[in-house]
Amino acid sequence: MTSSGPFPKLLPDSTSDTDAIARNDWNAYAEIDFLRDHWSVKQWAPGHTGYYWYLTFDSPELIELAAECQNALTQDELDNVPLDALHLTLAGIGSTTTVTDEQIDNLVSLARSRLTDVKPFDLTIGPLSGSRSAVRFSVSPWDPLLDLHRILRASTSESMPSLSAPTGSGGSRFRPHLGIAYNNTDRAAAELIEAVAALRDTGPATVRVNHVELVVLRRDGHSYRWDTRAAIPLGGTTVLDGALWADPAGSE
């Protein structure tokens, strides 16, 4: 199986049903014969940084779930995602060498105005599954994530028409997931798939999504790290001293 194209290739029968999403993820993962080295497949030039739209998480419930699964997967061929770096990638934007500060400021302003109509929502994280080069949780429902992806890509394209396309996949290729480990060598898949299968009854966790982040992403050894350029609240929430609080004037 090649590493090109979205994974899973097929969309789930329902983008709102947790069981359908988890089943689709697992059926695709269970059919993999060969795993790829993530760090070779995902090329990243030394010193490169790029802008991305992220959801980030510091939920104690999610951190506990991720740690439990990471501790059970003891293979040397896995590089764990640091527990303070759990994230869900919504869309890429472009390299920091080609995107200007003015473009980013315009993008943040546009996205902020459009995200006022998007209400905070909950996500179910789990069960555990994987891809051709990573171990990751299924995430559901997809519907609010697909809406965010569409809004952010449209805002990015409108703010940066000089770019041929934002970095990353289009809506038809977007597969929401949350990774907890990256495979660091090419190898047969059966052993890892068996280990992941034994953990599928662990969890799930529920997290609240009330903002999105525009980050400057870098690769630090065998992990991804970032600095937040802007945190944009959803709906009637406001950023205050790094925290998010509900704005009574915007509440229902």
Rank of each mutant, 00 (worst) to 15 (best):
A22Y: 11
L163Q: 06
I125N: 03
R229L: 01
R200I: 06
A197R: 15
G221W: 13
N80M: 11
S3I: 13
Q70N: 13
H149G: 06
S109R: 04
F57M: 03
G235W: 00
A66N: 09
G47H: 09
N106K: 00
A154R: 09
T116E: 08
W142R: 09
V239Q: 02
L234N: 01
D220T: 14
S59Q: 06
N27A: 14
A165P: 01
P248S: 05
I93Y: 00
F137Q: 07
N71C: 08
T89W: 04
D105C: 00
T100F: 01
S159D: 02
I232N: 06
L148F: 04
T49W: 01
A22G: 13
H211I: 07
T96P: 00
S40L: 12
P120Q: 01
W226F: 06
A22Q: 12
A189I: 10
A190V: 15
L65N: 06
A91C: 01
T228E: 06
Q43C: 07
E77K: 12
I180V: 13
T74N: 14
L55M: 09
I21G: 08
I232H: 00
D186M: 13
F137A: 06
G94R: 12
W39E: 07
G203W: 07
I32E: 06
A91P: 04
D186I: 14
H48V: 04
D247W: 02
S172I: 11
Y52S: 05
T206M: 10
P60M: 06
C69G: 05
T124W: 05
C69T: 13
R229C: 00
D17R: 12
T49G: 04
E31G: 14
L152T: 07
D143L: 12
D122W: 00
G242Y: 01
K9H: 14
Y54T: 06
Y54W: 10
L178V: 08
I125F: 04
T206Y: 03
R112A: 13
T206E: 11
A188G: 13
R114N: 07
V216C: 04
Y182L: 03
D37M: 08
D201R: 12
R225V: 09
T238L: 07
V81A: 11
T18I: 15
R112K: 01
L83C: 08
M160N: 03
A198E: 15
P161Y: 01
D101H: 05
I21W: 10
S16K: 14
P8W: 06
A243Y: 02
L83V: 07
R200Y: 11
D186V: 15
L88G: 04
L10M: 12
V209W: 01
A181D: 13
E252Y: 09
R187I: 14
G250R: 01
